[in-house]
Amino acid sequence: MRPSLGLAALLAAASLLAGACSSGEGDGAGSSSGSGEALASPVTVEHRFGTTTIKEVPKRIVTIDLQWTDVMLAMGVEPVAYSVDSLMPESGPPWQELPGGAKALALDDGVPVEQILALEPDLVLSTYSLNDEETYSLLANRVPTIVGPKDETQVTPWQDLVRTAGKFLDRSDRAEEVIGSVDEKVTAAATEFTGLKDRTFTLAQYIVGEAVYVVADEKDGSSLLFGGLGMRLNPDVLAEGRKTGDTRVNVGTERADLLRADLLVFLVNGGDESDLADIPGFADLPGTVALLDYPTVVGLNTPSPLSIPYVLDELRPKLAEASGGGA
């Protein structure tokens, strides 16, 4: 009983900032619903629990998890309901402006299937919170439902989500506009801080009293911003990722050496700065250390076209420092 409660807690913690969604494309047969206008060609999305085909432009979309909520808002679509991350400030993520009419869904007791179905949605979108197949089936039997990719610790690049949305909303032009305008900001930052080129970055969180989790995959959705700035992952971290096969590697508090980077972006999850004393050597890390708050790190970890510009602004002083300081 006790160990299993602990393990459940551990998994909840691990999935808190991990998560994913992938999107495929192409033609195929599958489910469909609604009475919206028909798509010229049906959009098929591959995900963890199978494939889902969308044949008509959805009008009533429920977004579970931040990435999809943001993608919909960036595409100018108001979801009928969206999930709330209870660790975010009460006003929501600082970069989000939610339409008043949308219903906020609490996920504290799992995905509220009945509440969602009562809204008669014609599409349900999730990245990582809809993570058990039974709940998925309850929804998917009634509504086309899209969840994250097979590797549940991986985060899908937001660009892929926007392109998928562009397809099923029949607004691929708008999708490219959204991507283009965000990419422009990233490119501008890369030009401004040319010193970042080939410097190393690490994105990590310390779940207090438990473990440090370090992103160890350059292709993960959370790494792409740093890649766009010309930065690289610490090779030692990459090696650990390959060894363990995890996108987010569980690192003991004694291994501050794996946090060494020219730019360390770090979250103390479930505590405050004083908890950094649990990590011997943290204070002596050589590079620039950006200790950020929960929303900003979530905006980096599960990035969206709305969170990236916000995060870039928040990181700006630290980017300048890492770009200037010799390393």
Partner: peptide
């Protein structure tokens, strides 16, 4: 979130 570290016994930290 805060109590989580306390649900598994540990002498670390």
């Amino acid at each position: 979130n805060q109590h989580r570290f306390w649900t598994v016994g540990s002498i670390a930290g």
